[in-house]
Every structure is written in C-alpha cells, then in structure tokens.
C-alpha cells in the first residue's frame, strides 16, 4: 500500500481534480502577475466548457488590458472598438439569437467611453451577458484615473488623489443598470479568494443560464485588483481591495432573476 502513495501514483489522470480548462488556449496570459483577469477568463471558459457551449459561443473583447482576450479564449471572438462591445454584441445576438453571446469589459471601457452603449443594451434587455471587471483604474494605458477610481485615490492622471469636487465620484454603474427593467440578473463578485472564486463561478453559471432561458441581460461585475496600477504586490492589492474597494463596491447580488 505504501507504493500507492508516491507522487507519481497520485498524479494520474484519473485522480485529477482541477486543471486549467482546455478552453483556455495554451498561450501565456499577457496580464501582470496576480491580476484577476486571468481568473475571470478561466471561470467563464470553465462554465462554457461545463455547459458544452463552445460551438454556440461568440464573445466580444473590449479595449483595455483584456483587448487580447481572444488570444486566450478558445472560442469565436470579435474585438470591439473602445466601449462599443454591448452594441457589437447586440448586432450579433439580434442576428444569431440562438448563440450564446457575451462581452468582457473593463471599467474604462464599460463605464466611461461605453456608458451609452452599456445602458442602452441593458435598457433594451438584450439577451446577452456582460462580464465587467472593475479595478478602478486604466491598466493598459499605464494607470490613469477611471470612472470607478475611488475618492482620493492616486493615479497617473490624479497624481494628488481623485478630488471628487473637480473629478467626480466613482460611478456605481452596476447599481444604475440594476434599476433598468431590461436587466434580469445583476451581481457584484470578486475572484481574490477561493470562496469568492466559487461564488463568482456560480454567478457566471446563473448569468449564462438566464441567457439560455431568454430572460434578458445578465450583468456580472467582478471587482478586481490592479497591483501594477495601484503600485502594490498582488497580495497587498487584494488586501487593499477588501479594505477600500469593497466599501464603495459591496459584493453580492443586486438583482436576482425572477423564477
């Protein structure tokens, strides 16, 4: 019996309990170490794999850090202009209503330049899913202020901190779109702990199911870190996120689908 417990004997295919889904391409992610984007990507792909939707899925990539999302997700994808992903997804879903259509967007893309497209896709109740990763900063362009940047938070374009008097307040777009009758499921999650990862995956499953059931627009916000932009280590950034982001962007379901 001792021999069965060697590393080699345990690491057999039949004992595998978790590994990267094959719907993630072999390409190394372009994200910074510890960035939540990778986990968010993986969870969406795990759900698509488990629900056997690969051949039915068309995804829309944004402009921002995840502009190259199509390099990592083994599904048909379209890359949208900055902020226009919900309009692009509208075009796809209206013409291919039986496909599973989602957008993957960051806070600058979704809540600044694309606010109009976001709100109107939600208001029309487009039967799509929007996965919204909010890290309160423009990561790809080098850490500028985002619509969701916290008050007094320092960024490259608010170097003395976001002065809400002149620069405005963090935009709670998720609460805003929850008020619209076109949305059916609106939730805010995170991916920084194992428990939160599990909850986020459940939220993604629910969002996908809502679309399959033609219930309207599902919106999953994932509050995430940007350790490079925030100038912290990944572990520090997750702690900072809990202490500073979550009070402004509290986790949990904001609107649950009707049965």
């Amino acid at each position: 019996m001792e021999e069965e417990l060697t590393r080699e004997s345990i690491c057999q295919q039949e004992n595998l309990v978790y590994s990267r889904t094959p719907l993630m391409t072999p390409k190394a992610l372009s994200y910074c170490p510890g960035c939540g984007h990778g986990t968010a990507h993986r969870l969406i792909m795990e759900v698509i794999e488990e629900m056997n939707l690969q051949s039915q899925t068309i995804g829309v990539a944004p402009v921002g850090c995840s502009v190259l999302a199509y390099d990592f997700l083994d599904i048909d994808m379209q890359q949208a202009a900055h902020g226009r992903a919900p309009a692009v997804a509208t075009g796809i879903k209206r013409l291919l209503p039986d496909k599973f259509v989602f957008t993957y967007q960051g806070d600058g893309d979704l809540a600044a330049i694309g606010t109009g497209e976001t709100i109107h896709a939600c208001n029309r109740g487009e039967n799509i899913c929007i996965f919204f990763v909010n890290n309160g900063i423009y990561g790809m362009t080098g850490g500028q202020m985002a619509p969701t940047t916290l008050p007094n938070m320092k960024t490259a374009t608010s170097p003395y901190g976001r002065d809400v008097v002149s620069m405005g307040y963090p935009l709670k777009i998720t609460e805003m779109i929850a008020m619209l009758p076109g949305t059916c499921f609106v939730t805010r999650q995170s991916v920084h702990t194992p428990a939160n990862v599990r909850k986020t995956k459940k939220a993604i499953q629910k969002a996908v199911q809502c679309q399959l059931d033609k219930k309207g627009l599902s919106f999953v916000e994932i509050v995430s870190n940007c350790n490079s932009g925030w100038k912290m280590t990944p572990l520090e950034s997750n702690k900072w996120m809990e202490e500073n982001m979550f009070p402004v962007f509290p986790l949990g379901d904001i609107k649950v689908p009707k049965p």
Partner: peptide, 25 residues
C-alpha cells in the same frame, strides 16, 4: 487536494490530484 491554490491562480498553472486513502493506508 483542496484546490484552493488552483482556484486563485490567475494563470491556471496548478493542476491538483487527489486520492481517497484506504483504511490500511
């Protein structure tokens, strides 16, 4: 084999294996 590490790994570089131990073991 709790998979916590794999769940939070953004780059998906961790695979987890698990076996149930028999009483004898």
């Amino acid at each position: 084999g709790c998979i916590n590490c794999a769940l939070v790994c953004p780059d998906g570089v961790i695979s987890v294996y698990r076996v149930k131990l028999k009483d004898a073991a």
